[in-house]
């Protein structure tokens, strides 16, 4: 998908207190044509964000002068700029907090550069409305297997070896799939999905979600126990996986 140089380079603000991590991010992103700003503290990040708002924000949650989640809330007060949060394993609750506060995605340290780029692309995709508002979204792997969703006609088809077969979905299954497709590539928290699909009164019913996700996997995945598209992020939510490589 998107790679190489763009005509006006995208600006990334890295908010991270560890110098080695900043260095590796800077090097990797420079090589991919991004313009990089750095901030070591929340204060510095705030100043940069309000002064010269970046196109993407890479934000470490544990900063010396405060919690990164604060910055997410502040930025969301005035901007929709993509925010990708950096955190450690075992901090799922924090990730969910950051996502529910408005962050677009997260990366678990340590992470590889391909993973980073995929997350940033997914977060930036929001900025290209055409990608999600196109009536038909197709998800095909290298082996030609996958599925296609026609959001306008509320139709879903499973694709195998170039042959598409209709898949019958219940209204709720379709709503769920539609939300996932709309945010393809992005992690969606349970809370978010429940609100989008069932409405604001079903916040706590994770079991609903699990049942319907299971049904969707049965209908769309070749191996439901080893899903290619409808992936689980334990303790956080679900992601409609877009890139072939994780």
């Amino acid at each position: 998908m998107t790679s190489g140089r763009l005509e006006s380079p995208l600006r990334v603000l890295i908010v991270e207190d560890e110098a080695p991590i900043r260095r590796f991010l800077r090097t990797a992103l420079h090589a991919r044509g991004y313009q990089v700003d750095e901030a070591e503290t929340l204060g510095a990040a705030r100043a940069t964000c309000t002064g010269r708002p970046p196109d993407v924000l890479l934000l470490d949650l544990g900063l010396p002068d405060g919690d990164g989640i604060e910055l997410v809330r502040e930025v969301r007060g005035w901007s929709t700029l993509p925010i990708v949060v950096l955190s450690a394993r075992g901090e799922e609750a924090q990730k969910v907090l950051a996502l529910d506060a408005g962050a677009d995605d997260y990366l678990t340290k340590p992470f590889g550069v391909p993973e980073l780029l995929a997350r940033m692309r997914a977060a930036l995709r929001k900025r290209a409305p055409k990608a999600t508002e196109m009536p038909v979204a197709e998800f095909l792997g290298a082996d030609g297997r996958g599925f296609a969703v026609d959001l306008a006609k509320r139709r879903c088809r499973r694709v195998e070896n170039g042959v598409a077969t209709d898949v019958k979905l219940t209204p709720t299954e379709f709503r769920l799939l539609a939300v996932l497709v709309h945010h393809a590539g992005k992690v969606l928290t349970h809370t978010f999905l429940l609100r989008e699909v069932w409405g604001p009164n079903h916040d706590g019913d994770v079991a609903y979600l699990r049942v319907y996700m299971g049904q969707l996997r049965q209908k769309l995945e070749l191996e439901p126990a080893r899903p290619r598209w409808l992936c689980t992020e334990p303790g956080v939510g679900y992601r409609l996986q877009v890139d072939e490589s994780p």
Binding site: A93, A207, R210, G214, P224, R226, P227, P234
Partner: peptide
């Protein structure tokens, strides 16, 4: 423990993905 209704299928799927 943060117990919630959990799908074993999903758990296996996520573990397989991570161990890939």
């Amino acid at each position: 423990l943060r117990r919630e209704w959990t799908s074993v299928e999903e758990v296996v799927g996520a573990a397989l993905r991570r161990v890939a």
